[in-house]
Amino acid sequence: MDFELLLVILVDGLVYSSYLFLVAVGLTVIFGVQKVLNVTHGAFYSFGAYLTAYLIGLWINDAEGGAFELLAFSLAVILIGSVFLGIVLGVLIERGLLKFLYTRDEHIVVLATFAGFLVLEDVILLIWGTDPYLAFRPLELMGSSEITGLIFDNYTFTMIGLSFLVAFVLWYGLNRTQFGKVLLAVIFDREVSMAMGINVTKIFLITFMIGTFLGALGGAYHAPIISVQPGIGVEVIVLAFAVVVIGGMGSIPGALIGAIVVGLSRAAAVHLYPELELFVIYAIMALVLIFRPEGLFAPIQARKI
C-alpha cells in the first residue's frame, strides 16, 4: 500500500469520524447520566439541520458581504440555533415525557423516545414541508485545500476541530468542575445522591438539555454539506447507536474512540474494498459486543445484588 493512499484514508477517516462523533456524542451524554437510550436524538439532529438550513437560506445564501463576516454569521446561526433548540426541545421532552418514565423499564423508555421521534419527525414536516433546504454557502465560502493532489473542502476540516473541542469541553466539564463532580455522583448512584441533597431533577434536566443541544449541533453543523430533507434523522439514529455501543454507552472518550475506529475502517473499506462499506459498521459493532459487551470504554458500574 502506498503512503499517499494511507494518508488519504487517514484524512477521509478522520473527517468521517468527526461526523460520527458529532452525531453520537449527545446520545452518549444522555445515556451516561439518565440511562436513557434516547431515540428522539435523531429528531434533534433533524431539527438542528432544518433550523440552520432554513435560516442560512433566509439570511446568508444570497447575501452580499465579505466571506469572513458571512462565515461568522453562519457559525453564530448554527450555535445560537442549537442552544435555542437544546432549551426548547430539551425541556419539552424531559419535562413533558421522560420525567414520567424514569421509574419504568428501560425498554419502555426506549420505545417512548422512539414514539417521540416519530411525532417530532412529522412536526418537522408540518413546520418546514417536504421541500429540501440547501445551505451550501458556508461550505463554498470556506474554500478548499490540497493534500497529495486531492482537493478537500476546509469546512469538513473544521468539523474535526469542532469534534475535538466538544470532546475536550465535555471532558473538562465532567472532570474539572463542580457541576461535573455532582454529575458523576448522580451517575454512580442516583438514590444516594438524592439523599445527599443533590437536586437530581435539576441535574437531569440540565444534562438532557446539553444532550439535546449536542444533537441539534450535529445536525446544524452538517446542514451546509447535506441536503436537508425528510428522513435524515432515521439514518443518523442507527449510526449514532452503533458508535455509542462500540465506544461504550455513556462514555465520552468511548464515543470519540468508537467514532475513530468506525470512521477509519469505513474509509479503508471505501478505498480498498468498496463492497464491504455497508457491513463495516455493523460488523464492528457485533465484534465489539461479542468480545467486549460493555463497549471499548464503558464507565464502571456498581453491581447491585
Binding site: V8, D12, S227, P274
Partner: peptide
Amino acid sequence: TKPQFPKLFSGQYGTEISALSR
C-alpha cells in the same frame, strides 16, 4: 474494479469523493 456503493441516504460522501478523485 472498485465501483462505489454507498448506503442509501447516507448523505456524507467525502471518502467516496476522494476515492473517485484518485
